[in-house]
Amino acid sequence: MALQITLNGEPRTFEAPLTVATLLVALDMTAERVAVERNRRIIRRAEHAATDVVDGDVIEVVHFVGGG
């Protein structure tokens, strides 16, 4: 089953079931270098595997970039 989410402002489709942890793997992102918000709530790293991503979720994945 496909699920539609908004990822960093863009509509994206993934196969269910999906967790924050498997989403980061699918995106080839290292969990230790990013922070994740699901529907405006921060998902701590220890909760990634246990946090389901479901249809309609709004996910933000952020990291550090150069800045002053």
Binding site: N8, R12, L27, A35, V61, H63, V65, G67, G68
Partner: peptide
């Protein structure tokens, strides 16, 4: 050092 926080670029990962 200071850094900024931004969305990960989903299409260009070359940075």
């Amino acid at each position: 050092v200071t850094v900024a926080l931004r969305r990960v670029n989903l299409t260009d990962r070359s940075e």
